[in-house]
Computed example of a mutant assay.
Amino acid sequence: MCGLGSTPVTTRLLGPADVRALAASLGVRPTKQLGQNFVHDANTVRRIARLAEVGSGDTVLEVGPGLGSLTLALLETGASVVAVEIDPVLAAALPGTLQDRVDDGSPAFRVVGADALRVTGADLPERPVSLVANLPYNVAVPVLLTLLERLPSLQRGLVMVQAEVAERLAARAGEPAYGVPSAKAAWYADVRRAGAVPRQVFWPVPQVESGLVQFTVREAPVTSASREQVFACIDAAFAQRRKTLRAALAGWAGSPVEAERALRAAGVDPQARGETLDVTQFAAVAAARG
């Protein structure tokens, strides 16, 4: 990579014919195992880059860049991109594709051949401030939560996920979609929906609808409990979400009596259900258990 992104550059984005031709030249057949659905619409990738609010001087982390459609749109803003790609064929081909399609010199880009679920800050050549990615739908939630945990330099991001997952990540306490992903994501960030993405902009066309999720990192709730303790409480509460918290947290707390004690100490009704508690309340319950 030649330096940091500094000013917007001119790129030639990938269209449907380009995506298919690139895949054919590499012998790549999109696989469900890796969650590969390649975006081929210029308006969509530019929209994602715009909504992500990235630009000159920003270092962006992209997970699963694939053939480079979104990568080119990010480079177009003047940002530098660090891409994590698990497919060795795609990882090897991506620098050449970008070099060919960026008209203003060498692209501000590096690729790391790795599994995003195993990446740490030490594996990256720069500290990213933003995550912008078309996340593989089969691992979208664990990838997002893992990166938020391991990369404290992240300040914000915009990810494309399955529409149902987007709804769950952005749900607030008391809403039907609220659950484990919602509560855990809220530990790290303010998460909100940022629009829908039609199936027709992908190749191959997925069987599910897609949605955009935007997040802004904030301080974790103030609590004497660790993140692991809070997350264990969340997991227990939603493992039996139809039960009252007194019953659902019995195994976690040691008994129904101990669960009730912790709940009352945290100011939570033992007859409430997990779907009514926000992450701050879960943190209070975890701290009260001791």
Rank of each mutant, 00 (worst) to 15 (best):
P107Q: 03
Q99Y: 02
F109V: 01
Q99P: 02
V112Y: 04
V112N: 07
D104C: 06
G105V: 07
P95G: 00
D87S: 14
Q99K: 15
A116S: 13
D87Y: 08
A116L: 14
P95N: 01
V102P: 13
A116G: 10
G105C: 12
F109P: 10
S106P: 11
A114C: 10
S106N: 12
D104P: 03
L94I: 06
V111N: 01
T97W: 12
R101K: 13
A116Y: 03
V112T: 09
D103H: 15
A114R: 12
V112G: 00
A108R: 03
P88W: 09
D103T: 13
D115I: 03
D104L: 11
Q99D: 04
L98E: 03
D100L: 14
A108D: 07
D87H: 07
D103A: 15
L90I: 12
A116E: 02
S106W: 04
L98P: 05
R101A: 10
A91L: 05
R101L: 14
T97S: 08
P107A: 04
G96Y: 06
P107T: 01
V89R: 11
D115T: 07
R110K: 06
L90W: 01
Q99G: 14
A92W: 01
D100V: 06
G105D: 10
G113Y: 04
A108T: 00
G113I: 02
R110M: 06
G105S: 06
P107L: 05
L98G: 07
L94N: 01
A92F: 05
P88H: 08
L90A: 11
A91C: 04
V89S: 10
V89I: 14
G105F: 06
P95D: 01
D87V: 08
T97C: 03
G113W: 08
P95M: 00
A116P: 09
V89G: 02
A91T: 06
D103R: 15
L98A: 05
S106K: 08
G113Q: 15
A93M: 04
S106L: 15
T97E: 15
R110P: 02
G113F: 02
Q99V: 12
D104G: 09
A116H: 03
T97H: 13
P88C: 12
A116M: 11
P95A: 03
L90R: 05
L90Q: 00
A91R: 02
V102L: 12
A92Y: 05
L94C: 06
V89F: 03
L98M: 13
G105A: 07
G113T: 12
T97R: 13
P95T: 02
A91H: 03
A91N: 02
R101Q: 05
D103F: 14
A93F: 09
R101E: 11
A116W: 12
D87W: 07
D87I: 00
G96P: 08
P88M: 14
R101D: 04
D103S: 15
T97Q: 11
D103Y: 12
F109M: 03
D104M: 13
R110Q: 13
G105E: 07
A114W: 07
A92P: 07
A92T: 11
D103M: 15
L98N: 05
Q99L: 13
F109R: 00
D115P: 14
D103N: 11
P107Y: 00
P107K: 05
D100P: 01
D115K: 09
A114M: 12
D100R: 15
D100E: 15
R110C: 06
